[in-house]
């Protein structure tokens, strides 16, 4: 079951940027690409815990600000030689509003 909730307007995030959503289980980074796609990932690099929301967004990737690990926003997988995966969450844009699936966000502790 999905439970889409409105977390804000697309314009609240700069293109090629991110904002965080605070949840009971830590922060989720919501990214907006240069093509206005939206992705939600855990705001924590699997390497040393860097805040991915503060990274540089390019294409469909983000570069962690601490040690330049690059992750696919789509799959959460580390790119290149690095190994690791960031949990991802369903996100979509409807009529200019960003929607996240609250059910999946809440399920996170079990995952």
């Amino acid at each position: 079951m999905t439970n889409w909730i409105d977390i804000g307007a697309l314009e609240d995030i700069p293109a090629r940027g991110a904002r965080v959503v605070r949840t009971a289980l830590g922060c989720v980074a919501v990214f907006r690409t240069g093509s206005d796609e939206v992705f939600a990932l855990e705001d924590r690099c699997p390497h040393k815990g860097g805040p991915l929301s503060e990274g540089i967004v390019h294409g469909q990737s983000v570069t962690c600000p601490l040690h330049n690990w690059v992750f696919s926003l789509e799959t959460g997988l580390a790119q290149g030689a690095d190994q690791g995966q960031v949990p991802t969450f369903p996100a979509r844009v409807e009529a200019g509003r960003i929607l996240l699936d609250a059910t999946r966000l809440a399920e996170r502790s079990a995952a």
Partner: peptide, 14 residues
């Protein structure tokens, strides 16, 4: 404003 979380769901999720 841009330094704050875009949304706070911590209460909802709990």
């Amino acid at each position: 404003e841009s330094y704050q979380p875009i949304a706070d769901l911590s209460l909802q999720a709990a």
